[in-house]
Nucleic acid binder design. Sequence first.
DNA 1: CTGCAAATGAAATTAATTTTCAATAAGTGA
DNA 2: TCACTTATTGAAAATTAATTTCATTTGCAG
Lengths: 149, 149
Amino acid sequence: MEVKDKHIVSMMRHQGHKITPQRRAILNVIARSDGHLTPAALYQRVKQRYPRIGLVTVYRTLDLLAGLGLICRVHTDGGCRNYLLRRPEEHHHHLICSGCAKVVDLADCNMAAEAARISGKTGFEIERHLVEFIGRCSHCRQMALAKGF
Amino acid sequence: MEVKDKHIVSMMRHQGHKITPQRRAILNVIARSDGHLTPAALYQRVKQRYPRIGLVTVYRTLDLLAGLGLICRVHTDGGCRNYLLRRPEEHHHHLICSGCAKVVDLADCNMAAEAARISGKTGFEIERHLVEFIGRCSHCRQMALAKGF
DNA sequence: CTGCAAATGAAATTAATTTTCAATAAGTGA
DNA sequence: TCACTTATTGAAAATTAATTTCATTTGCAG
Ligand SMILES: [Mn+2]
Ligand SMILES: [Mn+2]
Ligand SMILES: [Zn+2]
Ligand SMILES: [Zn+2]
């Protein structure tokens, strides 16, 4: 995480963006979170470390990081709040627990063939894709069982 | 579309929901639209036929229809506005043009094996999934070409 | 250091969605 | 057909999310 932060920081500087303590704080929170965060949730956490920060800065930083491809979004059903997410370097899919909202990254994508097929069938030039599986993690299933369904 | 409307109406009545002219109007608009609509866009179109309708009614009807599984949502990048969508009966995927936002339904889903594999690997009980391909339709590609990239 | 463009944050603004509540109307059953 | 009951409607207010403005601050190149 230390290393990754440095990597990100150097990448940002390289693209002409300034490194501010606010951005550092936001990056730290994102880096140490293992799930997804709404802008508001992120703001709450960042404020503990950096109380003076404004929510606007969070939004702006998120836009920036998303633009640089350093973070990505998840779109969940049920209230389309756009969630935030720490992004592994490579393309991946998501497995989301409908009970506790835990998110598991699925690294192995084999949609290439499917994409090619669809491209051939529709004439689209496929740029990217989004795959989310929604289900119940074993922990949540056991909870449900314990409470008699 | 006539037929489908009737089917939906009878299903709603069967579940104890009343059929109001507002709901009819909304259903008609959804049925004759071939793409996705935001609540606001839907509202605009419905008002032409039924000027007295309120936006609230649109939201409520959308919630109702979504709850009944008669429509579904699409989650697009870039402003997580939750789009609305006419729903074929069966599960399907989406192919979205990043140029003109046209949406193509992809009926043939063969994610079952993948879901089973993931389930086995992670202990999740997979409930459903969401697949979206994003790309450029041929029309938009030609536009781009005409303008010299 | 200095200077300047980039970045910040308070506040106002816009936009989307939900809640409230009194009035209305759909469907039911006499 | 005629109430009657209850779901539904819609205006308005209230929430909530996100963006814009703009004066002030600050990172960092020179
Ligand atoms: Mn991920
Ligand atoms: Mn569809
Ligand atoms: Zn993939
Ligand atoms: Zn599928």
